[in-house]
């Protein structure tokens, strides 16, 4: 299985420079290797910094438990769970898993309709914004991935409808994008469920300028 690659751009946060990036429409072995050999050690370094600084666990990076290889192996070959990856300068910068079958829209005007559910979305730990002990490297990875989810939804005939459970530290971001916040979902560790209304889909992908 080969992935198709789309060209995109990221902002290097430290220098302000524009960097060419790639959005892959499937996670491949190389991305998992990057996760194991680059993401994990960096993540551990950040966690050590949090520990050394005595930061309350409640404020630690909230995706620290995720195991991408394990997750990917569980869904490999399944049509209902496409995956995406963002790469820049040969390094994996973000990973995402979608689900096309098991979730339906919650918004009253589109209730029960099919949507693309973002099962997992994570950026490389050096891009984490609220962690201590480092300056985030790239900005824009999360947007490229969310855009890919919306494009997949359009391709499936789901009209761009997307939903997700945001990590608490990301609630403000998805609110800023105009997604509707359904509040804490007790069936999902009280993460807030967000769904994008149709008019915000157009403005997000830039159709209305």
């Amino acid at each position: 299985m080969t992935a198709e690659v789309s060209k995109a751009y990221l902002r290097e946060a430290t220098t302000g420079l524009v960097k060419e990036a790639e959005v892959w429409d499937s996670i491949v072995e190389q991305h998992l290797v990057d996760w194991e050999t680059e993401w994990k050690p960096y993540r551990d370094m950040i966690l050590q910094a949090h520990r050394a600084a005595g930061v309350s666990l409640l404020k630690w990076p909230q995706s620290r438990h995720w195991d991408w290889r394990n997750k990917y192996q569980c869904v490999q070959g399944m049509l209902s769970t496409p995956s995406f990856a963002v790469m820049c300068s040969g390094m994996t910068e973000g990973l995402m898993l979608l689900d096309l079958s098991l979730h339906r829209c919650q918004l009253p005007e589109q209730k029960g309709k099919h949507l693309v559910y973002v099962d997992f979305l994570e950026v490389a730990p050096w891009n984490w914004k609220t962690s201590i002990g480092h300056s985030p490297r790239y900005a824009g990875v999360g947007s490229l991935l969310l855009r890919a989810a919306i494009e997949r939804s359009l391709e499936e005939g789901f009209k761009g409808r997307v939903g997700l459970h945001a990590l608490p530290q990301a609630n403000s971001w998805y609110g800023k994008l105009g997604m509707i916040d359904f509040g804490p979902d007790s069936s999902k560790s009280n993460l807030h469920y967000f769904e994008m209304p149709l008019d915000k889909i157009d403005s997000f992908i830039g159709k209305d300028g």
Binding site: Q62, R64, H65, L97, V123, L167, A170, W173, L191
Partner: peptide, 8 residues
């Protein structure tokens, strides 16, 4: 902004 999503 942090952008992570998914049940952790």
């Amino acid at each position: 902004n942090e952008v992570g999503a998914g049940v952790f």
